[in-house]
Design a protein around this nucleic acid. Structure first.
Lengths: 117, 117
DNA sequence: TTCCTATTTGGCTAAACTGCCAAATAGGAA
DNA sequence: TTCCTATTTGGCAGTTTAGCCAAATAGGAA
């Protein structure tokens, strides 16, 4: 694999990795509605403030959100509007899994489905 | 956070997690061109076959690819065509980072940029 | 059957991630 | 200054991941 390509894929993977956590997905959904600060996000998430703060740092480090300090609060918002409708394809994957499972539960369990975990 | 919502976000996160590795992104790009077997993917990736096989298992387990055994070879292909043009938004994030870095290198380093890692 | 190739699985080590607590830091109010 | 609230950081324990090697498995050919 070309080194240049590898670097590019690593950059992509970094962003995806930052997205790949339920709490961080929740944060994204929330601040998509409008910027929000650490405290109120923490209340919604029901975890330790330090945990939420670290999740926000991951998102920030990946370039997905930016912070804005006002008074003694820090507000976060999305950098990229497209994140909002980013998940259609993932939903397709999930829907498809559903469909496959339903098929697998039926009488005609094909070879390929039988091989599946 | 509602339990139902949490379960949904966990499912999304699982798919994203499966995508979040450079080698797996490479595999996706390759089999997007057409199904491919473990051996030729391994040759392109330059890693141990067992490593590639495990990456493929991760993608399969997430529902992103399916396998098709023919003879003593196993061919993998994408389950969802939309994965192909999935990455536009991620590119936007990367481009934006680039832009921010360029700005940060300039003379006018603003408050927010200075705070950034 | 034996042999060869393709692929998966088990096991191991090193590294990364998560979530909590405690402590440090920052800003505003008194 | 001291006090209070908001947030970040350090550190720790437990879990997960990545990549390799070796061994197991599967299919086809001889």
């Amino acid at each position: 694999m070309l080194s240049e390509k590898k670097i590019h894929l690593e950059a992509r993977a970094k962003v995806l990795k930052a997205l790949a956590h339920p709490t961080r997905l929740f944060i994204i959904e929330e601040i998509e509605k409008g910027e929000n600060n650490v405290n109120s996000l923490t209340a919604l998430i029901e975890a330790d403030v330090s945990t939420v703060s670290k999740h926000l740092a991951v998102l920030k480090n990946a370039g997905i959100v930016v912070d804005d300090k006002r008074g003694n609060q820090v507000f976060y918002r999305l950098t990229v509007p497209c994140i909002s409708n980013f998940f259609g394809c993932i939903e397709t994957v999930l829907t498809q899994q559903h469909a496959q499972q339903s098929l697998a539960l039926g009488a005609d369990v094909s070879n390929r489905q039988a091989r599946g975990k």
